[in-house]
Design a protein around this nucleic acid. Structure first.
Lengths: 228, 228
DNA sequence: CGCGGATATGTCTATGTCGAAACAACGGAT
DNA sequence: ATCCGTTGTTTCGACATAGACATATCCGCG
């Protein structure tokens, strides 16, 4: 079973959702200079593209400056609002893409204390503070590799001096190098290693390689879980 | 323009996507004990629900143990695979939900160096290392509040001893308390404050309040951006 | 052996989405 | 004044999705 998490990101306002399709449309308008050629270049019908623009503008404000008549017959350009909307959409899409593509470590445990959304989960490696919206009993915590910070055991702030509430001492058991980003697996005494995504620079300056001792820390607010 | 980022999460396998709708169906089957009453309780047609289950099983493996005949006429129960699938879906949904609901700080700057996905962005506050898949020139970096770690200036690891590549010294300019989670705004010399989400415990132990000096640090791999 | 409740399957229809096409409006260029 | 290319607007039909409905099948139990 090859399961891959995926997503459709969108920005909603006033009941209308701006999605990837709309982003492509705006970019095409920006590039082609006209709604007509934009629709054609995307292989979509002009009628629908035009209706969609009107619909989006009702929700998000003026997006396309349309000019009909004139030399060349007219044309369309994006408004500043449209550019901001595009940027906002791309930012959230990039954030979501991070979640989808980045490896996660799944930790299982049991909720032993709850205070609003904030819970304390007892795991094999010790207590972990995390955010679990609801439920109790057994939980699965999802720890994203890009949320895990590695520090030198000799120079790690004492718990009272950092907002990273979860910390474990561990040993590097694997280093998987990419171009400039490496994935470090750290054994912290639970069944599976905790994955951390760090830059190659960090790996070198921390001298991380199999066998290295390292402190793994991550924030409670970056650790999300669900009751199972 | 009240924009709100949102998303539809799904897990795809073999061309079939398991989405929120399917999760609700499986949970209903689990709760009702039969595909029939599950469909009814959801106000959906039995015929389609049944066909959907078959379709999902072709992609993800056996999900529903169906029993027809017998006392009560039969019924259905979820397989272990189905429970794992549900848990995986809920985990990714929880992660995505985090991105959607958590405040972000948007930093603008200019790419001055690129090494694969890893870039160095020159901002008002100084250089920031981040992940930007492509493009150059001006970028918007999205820094999620839950990815920002705050530490005591007196006890912060030197840059050579941590994988958090970005750090800035700043002053707390605002504390917005929730139940157990507080949002801290830190001025680091750029136009807008950097937002950090920390637990109330952390706020107290670090003694954070308006005027406090604090070190803001975040990982390059947790900082994603897009060219604009 | 039939009952009853559930699963399995086929077909029709309502709905929404999208493309194709046609036509009017517009305004600078010729 | 006319032409031209684009925008604005409307209508129609193809297509996919999902509910409504009908029917066949299954099988433990009394």
């Amino acid at each position: 079973m090859d399961v891959r998490p995926a997503f459709d990101a969108y920005i909603s306002s006033d009941g209308v959702t701006f999605e990837a399709r709309d982003g492509a449309l705006l970019r095409a308008i920006d590039g082609e200079g006209s709604l007509n050629t934009a629709a054609e270049s995307l292989g979509r019908s002009y009628a629908h593209a035009q209706r969609r623009v009107v619909e989006l503008e009702e929700a998000f404000g003026p997006l396309v400056e349309r000019q009909r008549g004139g030399s060349g017959g007219g044309g369309s350009t994006l408004t500043e609002t449209a550019r901001e909307l595009l940027a906002a959409f791309e930012r959230t899409r990039a954030s979501f893409a991070g979640v989808a593509e980045i490896a996660e470590t799944v930790l299982t445990g049991r909720i032993v204390e709850r205070d609003g959304e904030l819970v304390t989960v007892e795991t094999e490696a010790g207590p972990i503070r995390a955010l679990v919206p609801e439920g109790d009993g057994r939980v699965q915590l999802s720890l994203r590799a890009d949320a895990v910070t590695l520090t030198d055991p000799e120079d790690t702030p004492v718990p009272e001096h950092t907002s990273a509430r979860n910390r474990f001492v561990g040993t590097v058991v694997g280093v998987e190098a990419g171009e400039r980003i490496v994935r470090v697996a750290v054994d912290v005494g639970i069944g599976q290693p905790v994955l951390a995504l760090v830059t190659e620079d960090s790996r070198q300056t921390l001298g991380l390689e199999a066998g290295s001792d390292v402190v793994v820390s991550f924030k409670a607010t970056a650790t999300r879980g669900v009751a199972v």
